[in-house]
Structure formats: C-alpha cells, structure tokens
C-alpha cells in the first residue's frame, strides 16, 4: 500500500528522523528499513529519499559523512543532529495528538488517551 503524496510528505521526514535517532544509516539501508518496518506503506524510491535527505540536511536536522564499509565500498551515512532531535520530538508530539484525535473520531482504532493504536512506524518516543 502506498500513502497519498501529501501524507507521505508529512510522514516521510518524521519516519526518517525516527530511524536515524537509533543509529546512523546510509541511503539504501533507510529505504529497506522503511519498507520493511512499515509493511511497504512508507516504501520510497531514490527519487523520494535523496531529495528528502538533502532537504533535511539543508535544514540542519541531519548531517552526512562518507564512511568505508567493511567490504571496502564507500557509503554516505546520515546522523541526527541536536536540532534534528528537537524536531523529531516536536513531530512525535504532533503525531500523537493527530492519531489521538483520529482515534477519538473513530477513524483509527485505539483509546482516546493518547497512545496511538496502530501505524506501522513505531512512533513512540
């Protein structure tokens, strides 16, 4: 299942920031992890991923550096910056409120106390 473009535009960056909050990752790794952990909902190609990463980098939310992998190949690894962490926290709050509101409206299953009842990306703080 693919998300609508507008939804993807809102959810994609948060998802990427969330993944990078756990460890540094390179492009392909991010694509694979997103697809796997979101059951394909947040699957994205290079045309979406790299412009998104460059935008996050331009905003100072992530930073990149080239590292050599064990197999000798060079890969560009992305890390979350301090600013990125703050942004992620703010985004997660917003998502919580949104999913809570959706649950209250009966659009999403779950309780109205805040914990989102679903979603493929683990958007817990």
């Amino acid at each position: 299942m693919k998300l609508e473009r507008e939804l993807m535009r809102g959810a994609g960056p948060t998802a990427v920031l969330q993944l990078l909050s756990t460890q540094s990752m390179y492009g392909y790794q991010l694509v694979e992890t997103l697809a796997k952990q979101s059951d394909g909902v947040l699957a994205m190609g290079q045309s979406t991923l790299y412009p998104m990463l460059y935008n996050l980098e331009a905003k100072g939310l992530i930073e990149a550096d080239w590292q050599e992998a064990p197999n000798g190949r060079k890969r560009k690894y992305y890390n979350l910056t301090g600013k990125g962490k703050k942004k992620l926290r703010a985004d997660l709050d917003a998502w919580k409120k949104l999913t809570g509101a959706m649950a209250n409206l009966g659009i999403l299953p779950g309780n109205p106390d805040g914990n989102p009842a679903g979603g493929s990306i683990g958007v817990s703080a």
Binding site: G45, Q46, S47, T48, Y50, P51, M52, L53, Y54, N55, E57, A58, K59
Partner: peptide
Amino acid sequence: QSFGNPKKVAKLLRRSTKRK
C-alpha cells in the same frame, strides 16, 4: 522501476541540493 522518471528525479535532486 523504483528509481522513477530521471528528469523528475533530477529536478528534485537539483532543488534539494541547492538548499544546501
């Protein structure tokens, strides 16, 4: 197939890279 239209990709890359 997963790459997308090169022209469109180039445009997105251009726009985002310039922001850096």
